[in-house]
Amino acid sequence: MAEAPKSRNFIGQAWLVILLALLYGGALATVHTALSARIAENKRNETYSVIPILVEGADQSMTAEVSVEGQNGKELTVYRVLDSGGHHRGWVLPAAGQGFADQIEILIGLDAEVSTIAGLYVLGQKETPGLGDYITGEGFRNRFRGKPTDRPLVVVKSDPKANNEILALTGATISSESVSGIVNRALANLKGPIRQLAPGGGEEQDEASSPADRQGETGP
């Protein structure tokens, strides 16, 4: 190249890249602002459609959205699930966290006493196709069903022995651990507050902030 070998004029070299980064950043911000409400609405509709899978006996039309303040001080929306007779059947908590590739968004179904996980559903993920994306499969999601909420879940690579152990997906340990980590953090954050909301669950309030909660909070 016939140009000057090393230019100290970085702006002269890079102005186009800098300008484009700003321009594209602005464009993406605009698109995000314009579409995020609609995307959130799509996710909400999907949440309602899977509530009967997450909590047995649930009636979608009876589901109520409840705003809860988590232990981290942030307001979150959770779903109180009722059956067609109006009886309290459980809860659905939306939660998200970093996966192997991108953010993983899940829904956690809990029974009425907030003592066991009733179901799990993956709302959004971009894990490796053919390996990590098996977290969306029923086979993996069912491994969470019936697990206790009083102890943090632990991912293991051989047959689970304790009832808080989850068998990892072959070739997708990080994705498996991400999901269980998201569950642990969400439970640690919200278990106490929603127990307080539960009808007749007021007495459990003290128990709710047991050491297990705090232990989960300091988890990965």
């Binding site: 698109v31 995000h32 579409l35 609609r38 995307i39 799509n42 999907e46 590739a101 991108d102 959004g124 993920q125 971009k126 894990e127 490796t128 196709p129 994306d133």
Partner: peptide, 17 residues
Amino acid sequence: RLLAAYMYEMSKQLGPY
């Protein structure tokens, strides 16, 4: 983002692609 907003099912099916 456009797919996620207007063709949500398809966007989920295509996932990371």
